[in-house]
Amino acid sequence: MRLNMIVNGTDVSAEVEPRLLLVHFLRDHLGLTGTHWGCDTSNCGTCVVWMDGLPVKSCTVLAVMAHGREVRTVESLEVDGKLDPVQEGFAHEHGLQCGFCTPGMMMTARWLLDNNPDPSDAEIREAISGQLCRCTGYENIVRSIRWAARKQASAPQEGHDIAPGQVVSSTLQDAGA
């Protein structure tokens, strides 16, 4: 089947099997391997991407169901070498250990902060409640999202002071909140 969609702002067109899942289309056809493929049953949430502005689990969306829609993946967070505050927060607060759940966690975090710039810890936990971290690093993930929220609140027009790959140290005070 022929499908067309916008992925991270770019028009994409491809001929795919009807049974192909969106997560596999992104990874295997487009080479966007930032989105991970985990449980395959809508439980773990590592495959979360945005479709038409809402986070969805891409292991439970057929690629052809995204035809004509706009998809956003974790690769879109970094812009021109500048990290998103959410990515900075995960770096500052050690929000990842093995990193497998990280892309889904960050895409959900970005959506949360876009819709609720000052979430409580309870709201953060609720937002990521459909996602699993088998390293059990939830405390640091919550701190990372809170860090990003503070960073955005203190410098809404800035927020990109870590280069990709840069090693950073962790303190809550770095958020300047």
Binding site: G45, P55, T60, V61, G130
Partner: peptide, 9 residues
Amino acid sequence: IADPIVRNR
């Protein structure tokens, strides 16, 4: 019912 991401779909 399910979780916030699944409830979106």
